[in-house]
Structure formats: structure tokens, C-alpha cells
Computed example of a mutant assay.
Amino acid sequence: MTESGTAKRRAAVALLLAMVLLGVFPLDVVLPSFPALSSHFNRSTSDIAFSVSLFAVGISLSQLLIGPLSDTLGRKGLLLAGMLISILGGIGCVLVSDFTWFLFFRCIQAIGCGSFVLTQALVQDLFVGKARDQLRILMITASGVFISVSPLAGTLLQQAFDWPGSFWVFVALATMVFIKALFFLENSLPLPHPSRTLVQSYRLVCRDSIFIGYWLISGLAFACHFSFIVMSPLLFLQHLQLSPYAFSLVLLLYGLAYLCGGVVAQMLSRRIQARAQINVGTLMIVFAGVLMLLFSSLLGLSILGVLLPMIVCTAGTTVARPIATSRAMDVFPEYAGTAASIGGMLVFVCGGGISALVNLSRFDLQTTLAVCFMVLGAAMLGLHALINRRQTKRRAE
């Protein structure tokens, strides 16, 4: 690769990682500011939590439109428009004094953040082969680290700048990403494909069982991580009585698991086939469930009994999920925007739905998480076997 090609590749990686970081701020970094937001707007914490739910709904609906449009209009214009809208929404959230207007601008911010779905499409456009797989490993590793660090970052921003701090940092980062994308990305269109309406594009990709199967594997792997993140305040703050600062440090250790998983995934991607890598990561998730169940029965609820199995589970997630995502996106490279939107929705539904079921369980949370990992891991192995059988049948035809 030439020096200019290497520099361009590094610039693309930097842009994509910055977009991954931006995806953390609107949801995760703002969580420590719930009490301050509640006091500022004179609303209950449940109302503030509703604003987060509203944001999640807005971003999921927005990406369902942005992805397919990018297949026909190109990525750059939609990404820049989305970034600009998210910046305006973030500024509006800080400047208004009425909670209704705050909700309105959070929705505006969410609509703009829907453009982050284009990260997967841009990876598909700008990289090929092993480089594409390795970049997705890096992005998922970075995402996990950012999420793990976010409670501590949110706490520090809250102490230094009050609740507007996370919004102003988001605006500053989004502005830098906007400028970077404006000068770096080209106005080229994605791969040519037959003209189809939005509904026709969705119908095409959703009817492919291999595409859906790989995205479900990615979504189930993500659900393991997301269920822990959602349950972690109850486990560590409520049941184990850790201080918020100690809880933040625990999540930093959890972030190290993403780094370790990313290193292992990078090594495996160079030595074994994608099929074997997915199986290895999935078996690690199942083993984490067995390990957590063993700790629960022998030691009861403890930091070690939760954190050590989660490190194993997270490493498995980082090994299996990026490759499953890459294989899903490879099915329809000419419809990368549509494929990324469908995949993002499936991952969001898996993470939200399964974490809600875990929360509703009548058993203790540690046992519930352990069983969840084993069941989800078994489901991933079953899906992967069905995909392999389907691929063998297609090649025979």
C-alpha cells in the first residue's frame, strides 16, 4: 500500500471510530446527570428516563429511513445532514428551559444520530476482505470500551460542567466529525444496483435467511453485553452496595475485557476461518454462563462471581459479533445502507427485548444472567448451523 493509501486508510479509521464514540454520548454519558436534569426541569427521574426511551425510539426509526436512502443518494450528503441535525438538537437541549421543548430537541438529536447507522455501510464501501473484518473488530472493541468508560466520564462532566456538559462535549465532537467527513469523504455513490423503492429494498434483504441469520447472531451476542450493562447498576449499586465511583471503576475493568477480546479476535481472524471464529466466540459465551452459574451456587453474589464470567462473555462477544456482522453485510454489498439499517434494528430489538426479559425474571439476577448467556449461546450455535446448512445447499444448487 502506498503512503497516500495508508494515510487515507488511517483517516477513514479515525472518522469511523469518532462516529462510534459519538454514539455513546447521547445515551450512556448522560446517565449520571439524571438527578441534575430532574432538578433543573422539576420533573421526576422517570420523566427523564422517558426522554432516553424517546431518544432510542427516534434513532431506531431514523436509521430505518437513512440507510436505504444512502443506497441511492450516497453516504456523504446524508451523513453530513444527520450530523448537522444532531448538533442543532444537542444545542437546543441545553438552551431550552421547558421540559416539553427539551423532549422535542432530544427527538431532533435522535433523528440526526440515526446517520450513525452509516458507519457499517462506510466500512463496506471503503474496505475489503480481512481489512474489513479487522476494522469491525476494532469498532466493536472501541464501542465496548467507550461504553465502559462512559459512567466515569459522565460523572466527571457532571461535576465539572453540570448536566449541559455532556451535551456540549457531544456538540464539539460532532462538529469535528462533521468537518472531518466534509473534507475526507468523496461524493461517490455506492455500488450500482437495480432501482428499487424503499419497501422493495427492505423486502429483498429481509427475505434472505442467511442475511437475517448472521444479523441475529450479532444481535444475540450484543444482547449478552447489553443485558449486563442494564443490570449492572442493580447488581453493583443496589445489591453489592458499591459507591458510584467504585461502580465506575468496575466498569473500567469490564472495558478491559473488550480490549482483550479485540486482541484475541484480531489474532483469530488471521489464523482461522470466519465460521470457526464465530463458533469459538459463541462457546466462550456459553462457558461464561456456566462459570457464572457455578460462582452463584458456590459463593453467592460477589464482584468476582459477576465480573470474571462477564469478562469471558465479553471476550466471546468481541470474537463472534464482528465476523457475524461482516458476513451479514457481505450478502448485499450493493444495498449496504439498507442492510445496515435492518441489522441495526435487529441488534436493537435483541438487546432491548432480552434485557427487558432478564429484568422481569423472578430469579436472582446473577442466575438469570448465567442462564441467559447459556440459552443465547445455544441459540447462536443453532443459527450458525442452520446458516452453514443453507449455504451448502445454495452452493449445491
Rank of each mutant, 00 (worst) to 15 (best):
F167H: 06
V52Q: 08
L61M: 14
A396P: 01
I217Y: 03
D98G: 05
E3K: 07
L251R: 01
I48P: 09
N187E: 06
I85R: 06
V358H: 09
T45E: 14
T317W: 07
F287D: 01
R10Y: 04
A336S: 15
S46I: 07
T314C: 10
Q391W: 02
Q109D: 05
A181F: 00
R390K: 05
Q159Y: 13
F228K: 04
L307F: 13
F127I: 06
I87D: 00
S46T: 15
L191A: 12
G262A: 09
P192H: 03
L185K: 01
D162P: 04
S201G: 14
R75H: 11
S232A: 15
F228C: 07
A12D: 09
L308Y: 02
G67Y: 07
P151Q: 04
S39E: 15
L84R: 04
T141A: 10
Q391V: 13
V375Y: 12
A385C: 12
H384M: 11
Q241H: 14
W215L: 03
F184N: 06
W168C: 08
I278Q: 02
H193N: 09
F167I: 02
P233S: 06
L307N: 09
D133F: 01
L103Q: 14
T318M: 08
A379Y: 05
S209C: 08
A257L: 12
N388W: 02
G90N: 03
F116N: 14
P164N: 12
D28A: 00
V349L: 11
P32A: 05
F226M: 10
S341V: 11
S143M: 14
F102T: 09
R196F: 10
S115C: 15
F183Y: 10
L118P: 05
L95K: 08
L173C: 14
V371E: 07
F211G: 05
R75C: 09
S46Q: 09
L234G: 03
